[in-house]
Amino acid sequence: MAQYQPLTEETAVQLVIKLQYFREDATLKVKEIGDGNLNLVFHIVDEENGKSIIVKQALPYAKVVGESWPLTLERARFESSFLQKAAEYVPDLVPKVFHFDETLAIIVMEDLSSHTILRKGTIEGIIYPKLAEHIGTFVAQVTFHTSDFYLHPFEKKQLVKEFINPELCKITEDLVFTDPFFDHETNDFPDGIRDTVEQLWQDQELKREAAKLKFQFLTQAEALLHGDLHTGSIFVTKESTKVIDSEFAYFGPAGFDLGQFFANLVLNYISQEAHIEELEKRKQYQAYLVDTIRETWSHFTKQFTELWHSKGNEVYTKVPGTLESFLNKVWTDAVGFAGCEAIRRTIGLAHVADLDSIQDLDKQYAAKKKALAIGAEFIKKRKQIQSVEQFIELFHVK
């Protein structure tokens, strides 16, 4: 059995030829395209017929920090397993997985070069008409089919066991739910917003509510989560949506993925004050972002409700009011998790280009202060924010 070693462009080509994805005499062009913190990513294409694939390999450390931050290679298995599980229910919304090698921590998968990373597209103000429907569908289908409402208890618990992901969950527990709320060395923010950050650290109510959300993340194995569903983990075209980068997958509270997705749209909304100068054009795009949040929740609840009534196996799915109670919990949790994501993406270790790419520092600082204030509101008022319209009112300027 081959021992683990990081791929090079040359060895990546040798691998795919050995796996017979290309002819031995094919003229292959290879490029290392990874820009993330955790992986190597190679794009390989046959120049004669255009056939192409992606080879992704997990690194044993976080590139953003270096070898002083070791990481488990098992995360490649979590990513591959999640994509294959999701493909059982939403095959058009995830890339196809062709091969997985556990020893080398390698996934060979469908090439999505025809798509754009959603974060890049939203920063540029591009509208994706199918995005809300696709993400609402993705979350509803995966959530329901991996929940106790559908699965036999034995099958559910076996699946939970397969997705116990302590090392990457610890990253989320620290970087999303803990470090940003304290004066921790992993935090990263400009001095221009330090006063606002220090006020946040002194907000004891905020900390208490963030603690509750962290405890839910630690203890509530409601459904299989992507675990990192931000706009950098979604490839898009006008007609297609593909969810990628699922190495943080685990069983957790059903509102978590929605909360992360909503938060990143809100951050983009805030950033458009600097990205789109023309007022009417900016308002139109911000209205699109608001509609995307509204419609994502609508598609999620509609599909989850249909699945509940048509495929629910748990006896309590037949009791009136149980569905509504669960959906209310998902919504409340999503709002709170959105607040944690908004704060951590502003002052934590991993930022978003939506805010950091703002060149005018006064505008950048204003946007970051607004993001922190809105994030705190989401966390502290999540139980009072009982509808998507109330959620939108907290940040949308009509």
Rank of each mutant, 00 (worst) to 15 (best):
V236G: 08
S246E: 04
H226R: 14
S233C: 10
D245C: 02
Q216T: 10
F251N: 00
Q220C: 07
F261V: 07
S246T: 08
L224A: 02
L229F: 12
A221R: 15
S246I: 03
R208T: 04
K238Y: 13
L218N: 14
G227K: 14
V243I: 13
S240D: 15
G259K: 08
L206Q: 00
E198M: 09
K212W: 09
Q216N: 13
D228R: 11
R208M: 06
Y250F: 13
L213T: 01
E247Y: 00
D203N: 05
K238N: 15
E239W: 05
H226C: 12
E222V: 03
Q260R: 12
L224I: 03
A254C: 05
S240P: 08
W201T: 00
Y269K: 03
G232K: 13
S240M: 14
T219F: 08
E247I: 01
F261M: 13
R208K: 14
E205I: 05
D257G: 11
D203G: 01
D245I: 01
G259R: 08
G232H: 11
H226K: 13
F248Q: 04
N264R: 08
H230E: 07
Q199A: 07
A223V: 12
A210Q: 01
G259N: 06
T231R: 07
L225N: 08
F251P: 00
Q199E: 07
L265H: 15
P253Y: 06
V243F: 11
F262D: 06
V243L: 08
L258M: 15
P253A: 07
D245K: 02
E247G: 01
F256P: 04
S233K: 14
L224H: 05
L258W: 07
G227Q: 10
A210W: 01
Q220L: 09
A211V: 05
V236I: 05
V266W: 04
T241E: 13
T219G: 09
N264S: 07
Q260A: 12
T241F: 09
E247M: 01
F262K: 08
V236C: 05
K242H: 06
Q216A: 13
F235Q: 13
I234L: 14
E247F: 00
E239T: 06
E198I: 05
L267I: 10
R208A: 06
L265E: 09
E198D: 05
L229M: 14
A210I: 00
F251K: 01
F235E: 05
Q199T: 03
A254D: 05
L225E: 02
K207P: 04
L225F: 09
Y250M: 11
S233A: 11
E247C: 01
Y250Q: 11
T241S: 13
Q216G: 11
E239P: 04
I234P: 08
V266S: 04
Q216P: 05
F235W: 06
L229W: 10
Q204V: 11
L213H: 02
N264D: 15
I244L: 12
G232E: 14
E198K: 13
D257A: 12
D203K: 01
A254M: 12
N268E: 15
Q216C: 09
F235L: 13
R208C: 04
L225R: 02
F262S: 10
A254W: 03
N268V: 09
I244M: 12
G259M: 06
D257I: 14
V236Y: 08
Q216I: 07
K212L: 15
F248A: 01
L224W: 06
L224D: 04
E198F: 12
S246G: 13
